[in-house]
């Protein structure tokens, strides 16, 4: 949830340069919007990859920027553009996930795979990096872990966005961390189940 770091190479640039490009983009300047895209695409893409998975992250990222272009007229500069864009991205990705979730089978094989690996203890050669492990989390636990531990949202905000109770958000976060810890602690053979 951090705002883009303002350029500080010159006192004249104390105001984030985004402001100029945002104003130009609002007036229809696609080149200015491209500069905004290049400044923020890595953050949006990383969010999309973590929440949607690598298969659909590129398309979802494009959807976010197209939506941002369509909604630019409603951006009034009350928050940093990066903050506004990030909130828009989260909302869009959550709605896409909800739509996709309805299309998925109830049984997610990735969940079993991660559970099995966790339950038998982890050997060093099976340890995976955190990004990969996040990608293998069950959908519900993954999105809450991404929003809370990576993006810095509060449980109350997550609950509002997802329409779930705060306690549910906390429980899913704990579940995600418990699954992830075994993949980051290859020496942990005395793991305790949740």
């Amino acid at each position: 949830m951090d705002d883009p770091t303002p350029a500080v190479d010159s006192p004249k640039r104390a105001v984030p340069d985004d402001a100029v490009d945002v104003a130009l983009a609002q007036s229809g300047d696609t080149q200015a919007f491209e500069r905004l895209y290049r400044a923020h695409v890595s953050r949006v893409f990383s969010l999309a990859r973590r929440m949607m998975g690598p298969e659909t992250a590129e398309e979802a990222t494009q959807d976010v920027f197209v939506r941002a272009w369509e909604k630019l007229g409603s951006f009034r500069g009350e928050a940093a553009f990066g903050t506004w864009l990030h909130r828009l991205a989260v909302n869009l990705l959550l709605s896409q996930r909800a739509r996709r979730g309805r299309d998925l089978a109830r049984h997610d094989p990735t969940e079993d795979a991660l559970e099995r690996r966790a339950s038998r203890g982890t050997r060093p050669e099976l340890a995976m990096d955190l990004e990969t492990a996040i990608g293998r989390l069950p959908d519900g636990a993954r999105q809450i872990f991404v929003l809370h531990d990576i993006e810095g949202y509060k449980h109350e905000e997550i609950g509002d966005s997802l329409g779930i109770a705060v306690g549910t958000s906390k429980a899913q976060l704990h579940r995600a961390r418990m699954l992830l810890r075994s993949h980051l602690e290859p020496q942990t053979e005395d793991r305790i189940g949740p």
Binding site: L130, D149, L180, L184
Partner: peptide, 17 residues
């Protein structure tokens, strides 16, 4: 371990597509 997972998550770098 839980604290380590949380702290590590906060250091993940963004990647370009």
């Amino acid at each position: 371990q839980l604290g380590r997972v949380r702290d590590l998550a906060g250091t993940l770098a963004d990647r370009e597509p």
